[in-house]
Structure formats: C-alpha cells, structure tokens
C-alpha cells in the first residue's frame, strides 16, 4: 500500500476501530457483570444462591379435602382420617421420598402435649412405607431447643426410627435462603431447605395448642419449624409470618391432632392440667381450613386468629371449612 492510501483511509479506519473498541468494552463489561459476585466465597454450599420451595400439594378432590375423626387414639384416628380422604395412595406414590414434619420444637416429655404424639408420627411413617411404598421417609424439624435433646425427650426420635424413618437433624449447611414472592417478611431468609430438597411429598403433623403470642399453634404454625436464622424476630408480626408460611409451604397433607388439646399456657404448657381431651383428629389438604376447624376446639373463632383470614385472602386456603364438605366419622 502506498503512503497516500494510508492517509486517505483515516475516517473509515477510525470508525471501524471505534466500533471495535466499543464492542470490546461491551464484551468486557458483560463478562464482568455475568461473573460478578459481591459476596466472598463460602465454605459450604453457596448460601447466596436462593432456592425455591417446591409445591408439594396434590390435586383437589371434591368432598375429599378434609376429614374429622372422633376417637381416643390418635394413631387409629389418623388411619381412618387418611382412608376417608382417598387413602395414603392418593398422597404417596411408590418410590416417593416423603418428608414428615412433626412439632419437635421443645425438649418436652410427650405427656405434656407440647410436641407431636410420637405414636402418631410412627403410625404415619409406617403407613407411608408399608402401604404407600415410599422409598424413604424422613422425619425432621428445626427445633427451638437443642435438636438432640428435643428428638430424644419428646420421644419422636425413638418412635420414628423404630418405625423405619430416617431422622434428619438440622445443621448450618442445611439452610438456604429463599424469598416468598409478594412476601414482606420472608425475603432472602434462610429456610431448612435440606429437609425438602429431595422430597416428593411433605406431610405436617401438629398438636393442637394454645399459644401465648399467636392465639393458637396448629398446622400452619407448625411450618415455623422450617425457618432458619434468628426467626424469633418474626414474633413481632406473628400473624403475617404465619400467613406467609402458609403461602410458602404447600404440603401434601396436614394432620392436626386434637386428641389431647393444650388448652392453656401454650406453647410450652408444662402441666398436664393444661391439657384437655377433645378426642378429635383432623386431616386435610388445606391447612387454613384444618386450622379454622381446629380453632373451635380451643373455643376460638376465626376472627380470633387473624392469620387465618390473612392466609385465606392470599390464596393459601379457605377459612370456610364447611364449604369443603368435611367428612365426619368416629373410631372407637
């Protein structure tokens, strides 16, 4: 090329060069943005990665949404209750991994009614394994007191293991952050994700208790046990958090054990005189409806428990349990 040619081309050359410069800048910036990670590397699984809670609910079936069984033995009542809803086969398919979340919140002996009845837990475990042909049943909770003591003293650890379940005790690495879409409180908050990471079904089993702060503790409050972090902070806004729990966790089935109800001094109780026999067990696919019925056993109205309406308004269930055509039955 002659010198003249070299001088004649500057403008075209310059434009081409500028475009290439611009493209390189864009490419470099895009790469940086893509790989950008403001948090330092963490030792365990990357906690900054948010997870999404799967929806474990099953399809609705008219007139088989909620069953209410009267009977003295919760294990027997639960068998009847589930049968009336279509049998365990409706909820657990062969080869499924089932997670059962009972209330193991306190290191409290079973006679005090602060935790789920261990025999009831064992019964559901066996039901899932034998008739449901589940591949694995995991029993877990993130207790308030020390986990080892809670599973031991509540009797649930021994009962569940004897029935063939695998116990899962919480560890820091088992918690991952999540956000509830549209939620105010559950926003980038740690939950006990390991409990449900590989699960196909989620079953909640809760005792019916009075609760000093929220009015009552039933199947919706039971999922508080899947929160991590300093979750006590949500007690300041207890109704909203319970409603958000109902929106976040959609279980396959919930069982509310009102055979012995903690009528006063909940959630820890302490005296057997805090307990009253109501001999009622409720099973259902709609925790809001189940809890709305359960409230009556505490002589409470739906309006006494604001979280019920909050959850219903958010679409997590219905407070009008009669609309779901509950099946009443009794077992001797």
């Amino acid at each position: 090329m002659t010198k003249k040619d070299k001088i004649k081309l500057p403008r075209r050359q310059f434009l081409a060069r500028t475009v290439k410069a611009g493209l390189s800048i864009v490419a470099a910036s895009a790469l940086a943005k893509l790989m950008y990670n403001s948090k330092p590397p963490s030792v365990a699984a990357d906690i900054s990665e948010m997870v999404k809670v799967p929806d474990f609910s099953v399809a609705a079936r008219a007139s088989q949404q909620i069953s209410i069984i009267k009977g003295p033995d919760p294990a027997q009542s639960s068998l009847k209750a589930i049968d009336l809803l279509g049998g365990i086969e409706r909820f657990v398919k062969p080869g499924d991994i089932v997670v059962i979340k009972p209330n193991v919140a306190f290191a409290s002996p079973p006679a005090l009614g602060a935790t789920t009845n261990p025999a009831l837990v064992a019964q559901i475990v066996r039901l899932c394994l034998d008739r449901g042909k589940a591949k694995k049943v995991i029993v877990t909770d993130n207790p308030i007191n020390n986990p080892e003591s809670c599973f031991l003293i509540s009797g649930i650890g021994k009962a569940a293991s004897a029935a063939g379940a695998e116990l899962l005790l919480p560890r820091p690495a088992y918690f991952r952050n999540t956000s509830l879409q549209g939620g105010k409180l559950i926003n980038d908050w740690p939950i006990y994700f390991e409990a449900m990471r590989k699960a196909d079904r989620l079953i909640g089993i809760a005792p019916l208790k009075d609760h000093h702060r929220s009015g009552a503790s039933m199947t919706m409050k039971n999922f508080y046990g899947l929160l991590g972090g300093r979750r006590n902070i949500f007690h300041q806004n207890i109704n909203t958090i319970i409603a958000e729990l109902a929106m976040l966790f959609r279980p396959t089935l919930v069982i509310l054990d009102g055979t012995t109800v903690m009528k006063t001094n909940g959630p820890t109780g302490g005296s057997t005189s805090d307990l009253k026999r109501a001999d009622t067990l409720i099973a259902g696919t709609d925790p809001v409806a189940v809890d709305s019925f359960g409230a009556t056993l505490l002589d409470l109205k739906t309006s006494d428990l604001p979280y019920l309406s909050l959850a219903a308004e958010a679409g997590a269930g219905s407070t009008d349990y009669m609309l779901l055509k509950p099946i009443f039955a009794s077992v001797s």
């Binding site: 470099a28 790469l31 940086a32 790989m35 950008y36 990670n37 330092p40």
Partner: peptide, 24 residues
Amino acid sequence: TMLATHSLYGPLALALITIILTII
C-alpha cells in the same frame, strides 16, 4: 481469579475501569 473460580469477586470489578480506559 475469574478464570480460575468462574466468578468475579466484588471489589475486583474495579479492574473494569482500567480495562475500559486502556481500550479507549
């Protein structure tokens, strides 16, 4: 670090300024 760890640790993104200014 980006090549080795497939992530760009926060404060190191300042290098983008140097890169852009060098390109220009």
